[in-house]
Amino acid sequence: MNAGKRNARDAALAGAAVEQSLAADHIPPASRKMLWRERIFKALLIVSLLVGMAVLAILVIDVLSDGLGTLNLSFLTSFPSAFPKNAGIESAITGSLWLMAICAFFVIPVGVAAAIYLEEFADRRRWWNRLIELNIQNLAAVPSIVYGILGLAYLVRGPLDLGRTVLAGGLTLGLLVLPVVVISSREALRAVPGSIREGAMGLGATRWQAIWYQVLPAAIPGISTGAILSLSRAIGETAPLIMVGAATFIAFNPTGLNSAFTALPLQIYNWLSSPQAEFKILAASAIIVLLMMLVAINSVAIIIRNRYEKKW
């Protein structure tokens, strides 16, 4: 159909539609142009979704085909080795778990407390509170390598002088995800209706009692979902750990906070930069393990969210 014809038809359709809409007892037929527009729009949305899914699928299939062959129990329970067939990721897994635990132990109380202050106590008419809010939003977007430098300068060396320990690594990751935890906790607190606070305080509860006994418990599903998702981000980070000087060849599990450590992403990075092809295959196996850990962590978050979905 040529353009002139189409315009003429559209004009006729539009005219008819106007006439018909004037007749109150008749519903005009749906405009074809509108229907097509809706279909094209929907198709675009699906294509965008497929782009993301396809990339993920290619990655997963590629990694699985490379790494599944060498993924076995002895791979999971061996330490790194100069010989590919002996090498494993036990110290990387335990290192990552240690990092996650330290990170959680630091970031959840601090992040939730900051969120409670900003959401429940801060007076938004004061410029400093608005400044803090703005800064937290910005911090969430700061590249992770910058946090690595911060960790190196202030945690590993500098004032705290913790050395290249798992504690310094965990705290650095904690700083990295702190803004995300603050923001998601604030959203969870904000989702608790004001009527709950009023109800509690109308009974003679103090502001703190209202928050501690009513608002916070109601917000815990949201807070934990956010916290778990930020931990899953922390566990996948490599750059800050390189900066704080985590070792890549550690043949023992962390023994304490002051222990040297490695982590899964670091082990993967190390193997991938090795010239031997066998190590690249081991890297693929380690990626599978890392992905499975991420899926497991995120599933916990989804389960918590669905289980405690609020019904007010």
């Binding site: 209706p193 009527s195 709950i196 009023e198 109800g199 509690a200 109308g202 009513q214 109601a218 609020k310 019904k311 007010w312």
Partner: peptide, 9 residues
């Protein structure tokens, strides 16, 4: 007592 019932969850 408020306009909309506001029981704690």
């Amino acid at each position: 007592v408020f306009q909309k019932p506001n029981p704690f969850p």
